[in-house]
Every structure is written in C-alpha cells, then in structure tokens.
Amino acid sequence: MSLDAATVRRIARLARIRVDDAEVETLQSELNAILGYVEQLAEVNVEGITPLSGGAQMALRHRPDQLSDGGIAEQILANAPDRVGNFFAVPKVVE
C-alpha cells in the first residue's frame, strides 16, 4: 500500500493540518517510508489472537456518582485564546 498525493491531502484534512504542495511531496515520501517499514507485519500469523489494546491488564475501576468538580469557569477559560464573557469564542460557524 502506497500513499498518493491525494491521500496525503485527504489525511491532512482529516487531521486538520494545513499542508502546501511542497509539504505534500515530502510527507508523501516520508509516510511511504514508514508504511514500507511496517509492511513487515504482514508476515506475522495472528490467527485467533485477541488484539491487545491497552497497556494494563485489569478491569475498569468505577467512581461513585458524586459532585466533586466544576465551578471553576475562570480557570477553565484562563488559557483561552479568545473568549466572549464566560464563553470560548471561535470564528463564526455558519450552519
């Protein structure tokens, strides 16, 4: 499997990273090198193997349903690049 330029652009769009034409070319060859390297996994027989998705082998711990957080709007907004009152602000979205 080898990436073409259109796929690189599609992936960049999915990842919300703006790329210019020159970057597409570089990325294409770099990504293909990585994909070429991981291609070796094709030779491993994984029939009947349960995928390992996490680093820990245990069950999920639950927390009690208690109000223990929130009420810190100012701290939540303190790092915001833009805000209107106590709202985060972004360029207007036209729906």
């Binding site: 960049a12 770099e30 990504l31 996994l41 193997i49």
Partner: peptide, 27 residues
C-alpha cells in the same frame, strides 16, 4: 508526520490492515 500516519492507519478501510494487525502482534 506521526499525526498523519496515525490518522491514516485508523482511517476507513485501513484500520484492520494496520491498527488491528498491530494490536494482535502486540498481544
């Protein structure tokens, strides 16, 4: 680069060949 590769291996049609396969080899 890593975001791009990661986005690609999870994307529709490639998940099984890359991500799921990798998880099995990880096992």
């Amino acid at each position: 680069r890593r975001i791009m590769i990661g986005t690609y291996v999870l994307s529709h049609g490639y998940y099984d060949a890359y991500y799921l396969k990798a998880q099995k080899v990880r096992a």
